[in-house]
Design a protein around this nucleic acid. Structure first.
Lengths: 189, 189
DNA sequence: GTCTATATAATGATAGAC
DNA sequence: GTCTATCATTATATAGAC
């Protein structure tokens, strides 16, 4: 494998550490140790910690966009495509029980810090919201599509929050099943 | 016992600041400024910052317990009592849009910090969970009562998370109405 | 590009005067 | 009980050698 650019390694390590420890609690020393570079070398690639946060958010936006496009191509029906979203909860249940949802916990932290990057971070939510709304429109729920998208997002966020608080993966599985039922009933209306 | 109020003032100020800014981000200087005492005076009343966190959690546990007992005495039926819980979302919608749910955001932060106090903090969730379970049992949902309690908790957490991320109070009102409908349908089964 | 060394500010925490 | 003064540590960030 070719040597990955240092800048990308920093962003990848920060992405992971911001998720696991939170933005505020993660220090340059933590990231430096993960990438095996010196603290001083950071400022060749980024001008501040906020700058790294911006890069992490952009990386997540890019990854999310790619994932949504993949789901759009994988599912035959809109219902199957929405099921990809629900399946993501189950697939990531171990990490969710430890660190919560990467989107929800980041937005929550940035809101409390009154950090200006909140408006970039919640763009992650907007990507999911817009994509889900399209699927619900495809299912015939024209007027309620956005409300349904927000509802599903909220349901998944709540599942992640309680799973993390109780450190319980199985709750995710139980509630994901309820979401499946909810989605099925939505398709028969 | 002169100036006994100081300790309580510290806990009250920390309670508010931990909610608004988060535990990690709130410094002794912040709390000291709110109470108008010196930083050094802190350590007469508490031996560490973790100690203040413990006191804050105990205060919240005590307040929550009192609120649940009040709800238990106010509602004629179990359904009315659960409605008190839903109404709390609406009543606190302005603060929730700014700071999220005080229980969910604290547990989420402590989980990421791997803070030992997480097990005390999520006792707040357990209080609500147990109280809600009792109400659902009262409604005749004997076997599913705990699952219903967890479901309602998750729903409210998700509402708070999205309301905070989008800084949108009206979403809380919309989803609370959905919860009301859900609760009504639950009573007719 | 990466390093060491350092500047500067803030943190949690302690000691001792009053 | 409260204060001032101070400690050790850590944080982000900068300067300059190589």
């Amino acid at each position: 494998m070719p040597h990955k650019a240092t800048r990308e390694q920093i962003v990848a390590a920060a992405d992971q550490l911001f998720y696991q420890q939170g933005y505020e609690y993660t220090s340059f020393a933590d990231i430096a140790a993960a990438v095996s570079i010196s603290r001083g070398n950071f400022y060749y690639h980024f001008k501040s910690k906020d700058d790294i946060l911006e890069a992490v958010i952009q990386l997540r936006l890019s990854n999310t966009q790619a994932m949504l496009e993949l789901w759009a191509s994988q599912g035959q029906t809109a219902q199957e495509r929405v099921r990809c979203f629900i399946q993501l909860l189950i697939r990531n249940r171990a990490k969710i029980a430890l660190y919560g949802c990467p989107v929800g916990t980041l937005c929550g932290e940035l809101a409390k810090l009154e950090h200006p990057a909140l408006n970039d971070a919640n763009q992650l939510f907007r990507l999911f919201r817009h994509w889900l709304r399209q699927q619900f429109e495809s299912m015939g729920h024209r007027t309620q599509a956005d409300a349904l998208a927000m509802h599903l997002l909220a349901r998944s966020q709540g599942i992640a929050t309680l799973a993390q608080a109780f450190q319980d993966q199985t709750f995710i599985e139980q509630e994901a099943e309820q979401l499946d039922i909810w989605l099925t009933q939505l398709g028969t209306h």
